[in-house]
Computed example of a mutant assay.
Amino acid sequence: MPKLTSSKLSTETGSPSGFSSSSVQSAEADRLEALRNYQILDTPPEAAFDDLVRLAAYICGTPVSLMSLIDAERQWFKAKAGDMDIAETHRDIAFCQYAMMAEDVFEVHDAQLDPLFRQNPLVTNDPNIRFYAGAALITPEGLPLGTICAIDTEPRHLTVQQRDALRILAKEVVAHLELRRARLQLEQETQKLEGLLRLANDRAQSMFMVSRSEIFVKQDSRLVRVHTEDIRYVEALGDYVNIYTSRERYTVYSTMKELEAKLPSREFARIHRKYIVCLDRITAIEGDSVQVDVGRVQDRNVPTLIPIGNSYKATLLSRLNLI
């Protein structure tokens, strides 16, 4: 299996032969921008990543496994399995900064014998690393973010199957990063849209504050203009209300109190805790119910029967022209 040797490392982590320092700096800037676009640095533990590092430890047979992300001057551990108390280290001493640049799984069999790592404080002091194996986390654009790695305090070698499993786990980590980023972007876009809709609704409300002859309702991420004169009645359904017009039914997230404040008070009346009716659409009162002409072509001459709440009946009768 191809490995990154100490001589190759000094080239790849510095200024590679044939590449200017400016191109190396540009590539590092692109890498850091990609990492920050995932919005994952310094976030709390997440089960998906914790599960993957546990799998890495089980598969590789090591007491410790990590998901490491390499920032500009540090390596930060998003997920940890095993006895590893530190949350981050300086980038200069990170094994993972070399592993993420390797062409394949980067493996150090015995760090005490490796000239690149034998003076590393992570080797000479706690956690006393002897064995390290890391697979790079490569974005779909080909930019390395860090590694998923397995660590032991005893020298060892991975089998062919274990190395292959570590490659697969690295791809799974990146897949979860992509899903996580997509979810965050969707949430942010949804918040922006809701903010715009609230702004539009507020402006619409102010435009028609005097007459309140129109309201705007949100339907499938659209704002729909509804003429209040076309509303027959309103029905409460928990956190939502149904607005019935002569042609349509609109279901919106609102309360009866909010909607009642938007309707012209001279034309509408609350007749029940669950119902608001247009007074002009009442065709009859029978006992504790009113009949409302819904006005739909298919339902014409078939009025709707709506109950009257006891506490609303006197107010309703006082607003009707009784003979």
Results as ranks from 00 to 15, higher is better:
residue 220 D to Y: 11
residue 232 R to D: 08
residue 279 L to I: 14
residue 235 E to G: 00
residue 255 T to L: 13
residue 249 R to K: 15
residue 256 M to R: 09
residue 272 H to E: 03
residue 272 H to C: 01
residue 221 S to R: 14
residue 223 L to E: 04
residue 239 D to Q: 02
residue 256 M to D: 09
residue 270 R to S: 07
residue 275 Y to I: 03
residue 257 K to W: 00
residue 227 H to Y: 13
residue 233 Y to T: 03
residue 220 D to F: 09
residue 230 D to N: 14
residue 236 A to Q: 11
residue 267 E to A: 04
residue 244 Y to V: 15
residue 219 Q to F: 07
residue 259 L to F: 02
residue 227 H to L: 14
residue 255 T to Y: 12
residue 280 D to R: 03
residue 265 S to A: 15
residue 219 Q to M: 12
residue 242 N to V: 04
residue 256 M to H: 09
residue 267 E to F: 02
residue 247 R to H: 15
residue 246 S to C: 11
residue 253 Y to M: 12
residue 217 V to G: 00
residue 248 E to S: 07
residue 240 Y to N: 08
residue 281 R to E: 10
residue 269 A to L: 03
residue 270 R to Y: 06
residue 271 I to S: 05
residue 220 D to M: 10
residue 279 L to M: 11
residue 230 D to K: 11
residue 257 K to G: 11
residue 232 R to W: 03
residue 262 K to V: 04
residue 245 T to A: 03
residue 232 R to M: 13
residue 247 R to A: 14
residue 232 R to Q: 11
residue 270 R to A: 05
residue 266 R to E: 14
residue 221 S to A: 14
residue 243 I to H: 08
residue 280 D to P: 01
residue 254 S to F: 04
residue 239 D to E: 13
residue 242 N to C: 12
residue 268 F to L: 05
residue 226 V to W: 10
residue 268 F to K: 01
residue 271 I to L: 07
residue 253 Y to Q: 12
residue 244 Y to P: 04
residue 235 E to R: 13
residue 224 V to L: 13
residue 224 V to S: 06
residue 278 C to P: 00
residue 228 T to I: 07
residue 231 I to R: 04
residue 260 E to G: 10
residue 223 L to A: 07
residue 271 I to W: 03
residue 269 A to G: 00
residue 269 A to R: 00
residue 276 I to Y: 07
residue 223 L to H: 06
residue 263 L to E: 07
residue 226 V to Q: 10
residue 234 V to D: 07
residue 274 K to P: 00
residue 279 L to Y: 08
residue 228 T to E: 05
residue 222 R to A: 12
residue 223 L to R: 04
residue 253 Y to G: 08
residue 237 L to D: 11
residue 239 D to L: 09
residue 237 L to S: 11
residue 259 L to T: 01
residue 257 K to P: 00
residue 232 R to K: 13
residue 228 T to G: 02
residue 258 E to Y: 06
residue 269 A to F: 05
residue 224 V to F: 05
residue 249 R to V: 15
residue 232 R to P: 02
residue 260 E to Q: 14
residue 278 C to V: 00
residue 239 D to K: 10
residue 227 H to I: 07
residue 235 E to W: 08
residue 247 R to N: 15
residue 225 R to F: 01
residue 237 L to N: 12
residue 244 Y to G: 00
residue 246 S to H: 13
residue 219 Q to Y: 10
residue 261 A to G: 08
residue 250 Y to Q: 11
residue 245 T to N: 04
residue 272 H to I: 00
residue 246 S to V: 13
residue 238 G to F: 02
residue 265 S to N: 11
residue 244 Y to W: 13
residue 237 L to F: 10
residue 279 L to C: 05
residue 252 V to K: 07
residue 268 F to Y: 11
residue 247 R to E: 15
residue 221 S to W: 09
residue 250 Y to A: 10
